[in-house]
Amino acid sequence: MPKSHAFFFSAVLMLFVSLQGCAFFKASHIEETEIHYPAPDPEIERLVEDYRAGIEQSLGEQIAVVEDTLTFSKPEGSLGNMAADALRYRAALELRTFVHLGIADESHYMLDFLPGSLTREAVYEFMPYLNHLVVLELRGDQITELMQQVAALGGAPLSGARFTIDSQNRARGILVNSTVVEPNKTYLIATTNRVANTGEPFPVLLNADRRIDLDISIRSLYLDFFRGRGRLTDATDGRIRS
């Protein structure tokens, strides 16, 4: 839900909470039987198992091996770093040019990875959306603003930049590709069409000077990235510190 919606929803809920104190609502007093953990319905469970065979047949292929537990932690996490690196590297490959940054919204990713086999099914579950790759062109001053937006979130999946988040949740010592940001220089940043369309949670992206939509699905991009890595290990490197 966009933040503006969330604000309104909160206001409505606050109103609703205030309503609870009045006589309009009253609790029922009915004898009840508590039920926790309803056991699965045996017939439905059997059907699910039968159908599951089709899932495993279609999507059981091993894509990679996960060696460490990989998560989207803050200020940085292994899986968040990989998610952003994959966007950036693939964009560079497709455009045949240097792409300075990659950025993603961690809320779009559904799984952490546990040690063991990483199947196609798990990658589909990890990234259920059929989004595509987008490259945006921003000026250096906008890149600085973007880093501040990342810092305000306490960190986000980011590739190509390093900085420290101070006690005021501000980004300090920002380096992009190991150099300071030049305010008037043009930078390319890879992301998804969903992030580019909504500007959430990085609204400065809506001010991009140019946008290139690439016919590369985000899901297939990750399949290729993880397959290329083969063995997935801890990928934290201190790119965002706090």
């Binding site: 006589a23 309009f24 609502f25 609790a27 029922s28 009915i30 009840e32 039987t33 508590e34 039920i35």
Partner: peptide
């Protein structure tokens, strides 16, 4: 705050009313 109660409201969870 002013009307009578057309709705009876319960917050109970994880229970099946008998």
């Amino acid at each position: 705050g002013s009307l009578a109660m057309p709705a009876l409201f319960s917050r109970d969870r994880n229970s099946v009313k008998m």
